[in-house]
Amino acid sequence: MTDAVTLDAVDLSYGPRSVLSQFTLRLAPGSFTALLGPNGAGKSTVFNLIAGLLRPDSGEVRVMGKSTSHSRAGLRHVGMVFQQSALDLELSVVQNLRYFAGLHGMKNPNSEIERLLAQLGLEGREGSSVRDLNGGHRRRLEIARALLPSPEILLLDEPTSGLDPASKQAIVDAVHAMSAQGVTVLWITHLLDELWPEDDVIVMQAGQVVSRGSFAELGGAKGLSEHYAGHERPQL
């Protein structure tokens, strides 16, 4: 079976600084993979490569078997929540979603928009300007947008930042449920309480994979906390 996402011996540098070196990653269809690592490990770079925002210096990135260097068609299957907000502050909630639906070629998105707004607790805010939403609601809107084209792959870069505990748990549960239904998930996070024991966990450091296994195999939250502590201890 074709991998949902493949990064094959990818090298990437920002000027003289190498960020990824011979980086290889394969995500099987329907898998839930958490990407962990200290700041600057290269997690967001991996995200940007899969999203087609960066092109590798060498190696290849494939989404649904199609190279992102040659075709953007694979991106039709991908929903993304960026670390930094990607909402248009000049537009309303529903205008943001319609705009995104249009970019993804959806011709009649209204019923799906209504369903997602209700699911994410944004009903009644359709006409609100995004500028007037608080951080948590903006995050929910980002998630609604990512889910709008019924993606086969979900890329989420710290998707629960700014959410209250109940909303955060609801998002974590919903995305795990989607994964169980066959959606491939790449979840970038620092929050270990978002992970389930069977989740595939990749720990990155300095552009390399330093550990990979299930959350349980890597020692759960306790084991990974120790792992983190070994790599990143801020000097205050």
């Binding site: 953007r72 991106l75 502050l89 970019l103 993804h104 070629g105």
Partner: peptide
Amino acid sequence: YDREMGSMRLLLTAPVPR
């Protein structure tokens, strides 16, 4: 401005040719 605010990413990750 869109690039600084992040909303440019949405446009550049759309599944249509750049």
